[in-house]
């Protein structure tokens, strides 16, 4: 979103708040990408020896019922099931959440605590516009991580023969992107509402834990069942997430992202900006 009339001498990544926010995360994204890639590659390399273990099915049938559903252990004898339970049901969601929440908190609350927000706000750009560009940059960053995850997952599956199809991987990666985005946007919202980075991290982190507890409780206790569908965790993870197709639940996640963003936009106009220092 470069602004019209920008001097041609301006580096591309400094032409808008959106691009500058992406510039800030570029090194981080490289690091996260390498980490995620190594993780997926390691698990994929373990898979053949796991598959060839004798009596593996007998071992899993002894797991309690909720464990079987939570980590999808019954399906662990397939490539999809293995990667799902090893990575996509806990490890990767946590990594996406940590990345997105950290970014979301830094985008506004971080700038306010650093003192750089002052000059940024005293420009012709409205606070709404600035928040919208920052939200877009956040989602773009999470999406980029999802893309890396997709490419690595497909590459591993094809070269090791895990049988994860393009659509299977798509649903898994999309659920990570949507889940990360929603909680990252909640961090952005909490930061925009309070100006405090600690709260901008604590609020979405607490909500994520609560959502996970609700999801797990729904698996354990039948009376919780109708409520667990409110949990973004259940919306993202219950269907697979690898190989879950494109469930309607993803729409709820997308809607959640949209609602949080819209609620965030007027927040900086409603409160005092803390003075630097």
């Amino acid at each position: 979103m470069p602004l019209p009339g920008t001097d041609p001498g301006t580096p591309f990544l400094l032409r808008s708040v959106y691009l500058k926010s992406l510039r800030d995360v570029r090194h981080g994204l490289v690091g996260w990408s390498i980490g995620i890639a190594l993780l997926v590659i390691t698990e994929s390399l373990i898979w053949p020896s796991f598959r060839d273990m004798p009596d593996i099915e007998k071992l899993f049938s002894q797991y309690p019922d909720y464990m079987q559903r939570l980590f999808d252990v019954s399906a662990m004898t397939s490539g999809i099931g293995f990667i799902n339970s090893e990575l996509f049901t806990l490890m990767l969601p946590v990594l996406f959440l940590v990345h997105a929440i950290g970014r979301g908190a830094r985008l506004v609350a971080g700038e306010e605590e650093d003192g750089t927000l002052d000059v940024l706000l005293v420009t012709p750009l409205s606070t709404t516009r600035i928040l919208l560009e920052k939200a877009a940059a956040l989602v773009t960053g999470v999406f980029a991580l999802g893309l890396v995850l997709y490419v690595v997952t497909m590459t591993c599956s094809l070269s090791i023969g895990m049988g994860i199809g393009p659509l299977d991987a798509l649903s898994g990666c999309l659920s990570m992107v949507l889940l990360g985005s929603e909680f990252g946007l909640i961090a952005l919202a909490a930061g925009a509402a309070t100006g405090r980075k600690s709260l901008a991290v604590a609020v979405p982190a607490a909500l994520a834990v609560a959502a996970y507890v609700l999801y797990v409780a729904g698996l354990l206790v039948t009376s919780v069942d109708p409520w667990q569908h409110l949990s973004p965790m259940e919306q993202a993870l219950a269907s697979g997430p690898l190989g879950g197709g494109l469930p309607l639940d993803f729409l709820w996640l997308a809607l959640g992202c949209a609602v949080v963003t819209v609620a965030t936009l007027p927040m900086l106009d409603r409160r005092d900006i803390a003075a630097p220092g």
Binding site: G115, T116, D118, V119, V122, T123, P124, A275, P276, G277
Partner: peptide, 18 residues
């Protein structure tokens, strides 16, 4: 605020850049 901010040059009491 945005029209005001367009026409104003502002130096904060404690200036911090990136």
């Amino acid at each position: 605020p945005d029209e005001v901010q367009r026409r104003v040059g502002y130096l904060p009491g404690r200036f911090v850049g990136y």
